[in-house]
Nucleic acid binder design. Structure first.
Lengths: 218, 218
DNA sequence: ATATATATTTAGATTAATCTAAATATATAT
DNA sequence: ATATATATTTAGATTAATCTAAATATATAT
């Protein structure tokens, strides 16, 4: 049996280490989980004992194949629930994360299979992140940051890098959602701000914004 | 903050003590929760300290008004999730309880409000038990046990007393569901078995069955 | 009314997850 | 290459929830 806390550590290692394959430091985990480094050391030993993680003292941790499987399953559950909350229960995209953090730990194979079917097998969550399928496969989308798009390019908004509620509220306020079409009008070399056209309106976005919004070239 | 374990104890006291108003014994709780009496004593002291329960040594426990509110809210969540699982995710009525036991602990006011609306404000769960509304009010239905119905009475099946998966599977097998119409044909005085007519077919049910199925006189 | 059985509580230990403070590796600066 | 700073681990304590075994109340039988 795997505890809720273990699941959360596995998830953190997975996210910090780019799907858990890169070694991550004790301190990085402590920061992510909002605990002390000493607590992380203890837990990481436990994960290693249970064969969910590879760990060498002072050298950091990565996930084993088994650990990755668990992590991917949690991510799958998290993102499916996010779709459910946004599409069926009218949650706005800045509200879904917190509740999905809880729902992702519910244990029932059938529940997730049926939820997946009920939602018509979505491939992406409301932030544009891919949803792993039942066997753990993840569909990659070729997305780039808005800041990397060329002048004149027509793009479709497909995701966010930062999913803090502040950023998501900013996007809502400016009528930017997943699927929104936009065109790069000009780029200001001085501060790297970008002028874009959305729904026939022009909008200037700062480089901070442009570095946190993923788009796909149309 | 209330812990998951505290919530489960409160729920047990609520169910054992007929909505938590009757005093229940330490041993009864231990049996229900599958723990030892000594663990119950400890927890019950804690619930009393937190003002969720009234407790006098050796005299048993009941819930305070605050404890009852918490219990009713858990019951509300549990039953709403049961409706969701049965209606939207094709769970059969013997499978829903176990998953709802987990889902009932998810903390989010908005989630439950929206779920309630999404399900069109159901008043009863798939076992026929009433769902408390947002303010905690519970709609009572005037139901009787099948064993108490008179010969010749036409009834509608409205709930079950025992909701073990064995019993629910028995009902499924015999095409008895909530809303099923039936008529009492005869009662056998010797073993209290009852002959009923369902969908033009006759069926003999034992007194055990008749004592666990709730009906409403049509 | 007293002895006996049953229920409940207390004392002290255990496990998972956490912490603080001290000890020890590793990384960085000169 | 050595001193210093930073990161990590260890030792020992704490909290919530649990347990076993012993102690103590309460209920029951005669």
């Amino acid at each position: 049996m795997i505890t809720l806390t273990e699941e959360n550590y596995i998830k953190a290692i997975y996210h910090l280490g780019k799907q858990g394959s890169i070694t991550v430091s004790t301190n990085a985990i402590a920061k992510e989980m909002d605990t002390k480094a000493s607590s992380v050391t203890d837990m990481v030993k436990k994960l290693s004992d249970k064969n969910y993680a590879d760990y060498k003292k002072y050298q950091g941790v990565s996930l084993t194949e088994e650990g990755k499987k668990i992590a991917i399953n949690i991510v799958r559950k998290h993102r499916l629930w996010e779709v459910f909350l946004a599409e069926k229960l009218n949650f706005s995209w800045d509200e879904i994360h917190e509740v999905a953090e809880q729902l992702e730990h519910i244990k029932s194979e059938k529940l997730i299979q049926q939820l997946d079917a009920f939602l018509k097998y979505p491939t992406h969550d409301p932030h544009g992140d891919p949803i792993p399928d039942e066997s753990g496969r993840i569909k990659k989308i070729d997305k780039i940051l808005l800041s990397q798009a060329q002048i004149g390019a027509r793009c479709i908004c497909v995701g966010v890098k930062d999913s803090s509620s502040e950023f998501l509220k900013y996007l809502d306020k400016n009528n930017i959602a997943l699927g929104t079409n936009l065109k790069i009008i000009s780029k200001e070399p001085f501060d790297h701000s970008i002028a874009i056209k959305i729904n026939a309106k022009e909008l200037i976005v700062s480089s901070t914004i442009a570095n946190n919004l993923f788009v796909k070239i149309a």
